[in-house]
């Protein structure tokens, strides 16, 4: 196979980066992102690929006989856990390595993956209720607490989506959501619904605690991606403390 021209190399690298960035956004481990980009570039004939990824940035340089070297970087700013998209991207990158899809084909496949919608808002609100109710019982709440916790879970979804329109700071959003949750649970108990505001809040707190970030950070640390692992770990811990503090804030009032 003849070497890639400069233009082709840049184009394929662009799509490899596009896939890597999308994976990172859905909550993939850094190792997976680096591995995917490397495999795609090598499949298209790069002689050597150097990828460096941390939570907020991807840098890739590919080397080849004809185009010498080519570097692209990405600044990755936000993050939204989406496991079905991650799965689809993973399948796409495997397929690219096996079949060497053309650039147009990759573009249209990526477009299709990116435009798959999430679950609609009412379903998500219902899920917040179900998760709160489940963990309220799980940590030993009563049935009455469970109902109140579910109702507050739905409220939290509304508050969260309202706040997300105004701010992109996850720490602030989590803190305000948590404070609202704590306030509502105290109000509910003093109005005579539910037995213990603690049990109610414990059900709600599980919604906001960054379980996925925590699990991923541990996996990152032990797959030698120390920087990302530590950054994600600290993020998760700070967020968890903010959430827990937010819920107890109402006790001051």
């Amino acid at each position: 196979m003849p070497g890639l021209t400069r233009q082709e190399a840049e184009r394929y690298l662009y799509y490899a980066m596009e896939i890597g960035e999308a994976m990172l956004l859905c909550g993939a481990e850094v190792g997976r992102v680096e591995d995917s980009i490397r495999r795609i570039c090598i499949a298209y004939g790069a002689r050597r690929v150097d990828v460096f990824t941390i939570t907020s940035s991807i840098v890739t340089t590919v080397y080849g006989e004809e185009f010498l070297s080519c570097t692209q970087t990405r600044r990755v700013s936000s993050m939204k856990n989406d496991l079905s998209r991650l799965n689809a991207l993973n399948c796409l990158s495997r397929e690219i390595c096996e079949k060497k899809l053309s650039a147009e084909e990759i573009a249209s496949r990526l477009e299709a993956i990116q435009s798959t919608p999430g679950y609609p808002f009412p379903v998500q609100a219902a899920l917040y209720a179900v998760v709160s109710a489940a963990f309220c019982i799980f940590f030993g709440g009563s049935w009455e607490d469970m109902l109140v916790s579910a109702a507050i879970g739905v409220c939290l979804k509304f508050v969260e989506s309202f706040l997300q329109k105004g701010s992109s700071n996850p720490l602030l959003i989590a803190l305000l959501c948590a404070a609202t949750g704590g306030l509502l649970s105290n109000l509910a108990v003093s109005a005579g619904f539910g037995n213990s505001s603690d049990s109610i809040s414990i059900g709600n707190i599980m919604l906001l605690i960054p379980g996925m970030a925590f699990t991923n950070s541990i996996r990152d640390i032990f797959s030698k991606d120390m920087i990302t692992g530590l950054v994600r770990f600290v993020e998760a811990v700070v967020l968890a403390i903010a959430v827990a503090l937010g819920f107890t804030f109402a006790n001051f009032l």
Partner: peptide, 11 residues
């Protein structure tokens, strides 16, 4: 995830 313990700790 030890959410309950975290909540109690902060409380």
């Amino acid at each position: 995830v030890p959410g309950a313990a975290l909540y109690r700790a902060m409380k």
